[in-house]
């Protein structure tokens, strides 16, 4: 859970978030490229979650497996939910939705790392 993959995810998410906030501040609706970039981030997060799920089967489980599982499901669903809402909102607020989504993802990844490091 602490590999370069999660670091890459966090960095990409924060860079994208800055970009989306800028777009929203400039009163721009999410472009096709913006949505595709968020889909890319979503794919990255999915890979991260799959790696974490595989990790659950190699013996070292977090003490709070239920919470960990809940966070995994939330993390994997979050970006698609943001993309869905942003597509419903083709205004500056759509860009803000993507920005909020991209800011929450690093938090979720950090929480996953926190829970995973408490191994029973």
């Amino acid at each position: 859970m602490n590999g370069p993959l999660s670091v890459a995810t966090i960095v990409v998410a924060l860079v994208l978030a800055a970009w989306y906030f800028l777009r929203s501040a400039l009163d721009r609706a999410p472009s096709r490229l913006d949505l595709l970039a968020m889909a890319g981030l979503s794919a990255l997060v999915t890979v991260l979650v799959v790696v974490a799920v595989i990790g659950l089967f190699d013996g070292t489980r977090p003490s709070d497996t239920a919470t960990f599982g809940g966070y995994l499901v939330t993390t994997v669903c979050f970006a698609p939910a943001a993309i869905w809402l942003a597509r419903l909102e083709p205004t500056r607020w759509g860009s803000l939705i993507l920005g909020v989504g991209a800011v929450v993802l690093p938090v979720l990844v950090l929480r996953l790392q926190q829970i995973a490091s408490v191994i029973s």
Binding site: A81, L85, L88, W93, G101
Partner: peptide
């Protein structure tokens, strides 16, 4: 539920999920 309201929808939805899940656990 449109415009800024849709941003609030995402944030409130996130908090609804995290607070409920936390309470459940």
């Amino acid at each position: 539920g449109t415009g800024l309201g849709r941003v609030l929808l995402l944030v409130y939805g996130t908090f609804a999920l995290s607070a409920s899940a936390r309470a459940l656990v």
